[in-house]
Design a protein around this nucleic acid. Structure first.
Lengths: 217, 217
DNA sequence: ATTCACTTACTGACATGTAAGTAAGTTGCG
DNA sequence: CGCAACTTACTTACATGTCAGTAAGTGAAT
């Protein structure tokens, strides 16, 4: 967009690095956008609301990000980076530690309602037609499932069939997300307890195989 | 507005019962609205799109329902009635049959993608501020949890503590909803298999109590 | 001196809701 | 029955608001 009408002589001056304040400014806007998209959704959240939180106009936001959709994309990338940074160099744990990590995350999420809401709203919205976050959400699920499935098979020491591990991995992610929705709507749902209970139940079933005392259907 | 200039004598004439075609017409509109709100969400779906599906204008829709929000409310009520009618006089099953019913529902849902998407989108949207469907969704969760919790305690024959049954009930609902989202985004998720696996796992854990071979944390 | 980070001002698209009019149906009454 | 009184089911037109995005300008930092 910047080079829509380039002069004949291409200036050799490359864009020097942005002012030192700019990077932080953009991060502020991204945080504001994450908040707005989180509480109102992407479609229903407006650029004006995002802009107001950092004290500029909506056109100022567009100056930095070009379009609303690009802003969303960068919010998602930003969050990925922050998530990684929070892990502080620690690789995502594997084996049994992964499940402990998931339960710990559920406990932490009780004090991060805004973030949980943002994730929930965006995930729900992403299943609508041509939603710009669809690819990101789908990919996130795919990656997570792969990691959890691998951890299950590692813990099981080769005794867990691949499809069982895959179903269990999907179920663990599903129960975490589904419980978050219920908790957001009704505080009486005990998010950490129910999450821990369900993950243990699913993991146990995957490891013990099909010898269940109460098979259905 | 009609009575802006009322004659001195108030006519006793009351509005008669609606024409026989009207009820079906409204039902058509409700079905169209369910489709639109289901695929686009409530906020993002427009009255014009709903109207177009039944061959009238958006003002015609408002003639019948007064406001967009009222239309949504009636869509939800309509769906409740249809759900009940589908059960055809059968009470919602209790005891072990309830869980079989849930697994059967997951199997049926594979062929009802639109309905599943509508439920998913609306549920996700409902956690945003002041959403008109919030009460309906919250209530639906509360009722379902109560039924499932009761069924667990019935199957367990008094050996399952109330809080464990409550956590298991939340988890079962959560895993069903969460798996639906993943399935909508990625067909490679085996919705019926994973649902059956997870429900059996959670139910088994609830009935067997805390004697788990792999406790976390 | 130029580029950056904005602002102001505006456009066009689209939203819900309202007002007023019309054609067709229904009902009560003579 | 037949017609007048009235309601229903719409339509078109409009009021009003909100939105993303664009264009042009300004002042400050580099």
């Amino acid at each position: 967009m910047d080079d829509a009408v380039p002069p004949a002589a291409a200036p050799q001056r490359r864009a020097r690095q942005p002012r030192q304040a700019t990077t932080e400014r953009r991060a502020e806007i991204l945080r504001a956008a994450a908040h707005t998209f989180g509480s109102k959704g992407y479609k229903n959240g407006s650029l004006a609301e995002v802009a107001e939180q950092v004290g500029i106009t909506h056109a100022g936001v567009l100056h930095h990000f070009g379009s609303k959709e690009q802003l969303l994309v960068e919010v998602l990338e930003f969050r990925d980076k922050e998530d990684v940074r929070d892990l502080e160099g620690q690789h995502i744990p594997d084996g049994i530690e992964l499940f402990q990590h998931l339960v710990r995350t559920a406990r932490m999420n009780v004090d991060r309602r805004g973030i949980v809401q943002g994730y929930t709203v965006l995930t729900g919205e992403s299943v609508t037609e041509d939603h710009p976050a669809r690819g990101w959400v789908t990919n996130r699920f795919t990656v997570l499932r792969g990691e959890i499935q691998a951890a299950i098979m590692e813990v099981g020491g080769g005794d867990v069939p691949q499809d069982v591990a895959a179903q269990a991995a999907s179920a663990i992610i599903g129960v975490m997300d589904g419980l978050q929705v219920q908790w957001l709507l009704d505080d009486s749902v005990d998010l950490p307890a129910a999450t821990k209970f369900a993950i243990e139940a699913i993991l146990t079933a995957a490891l013990l195989g099909t010898g269940r005392p109460h098979p259905l259907v």
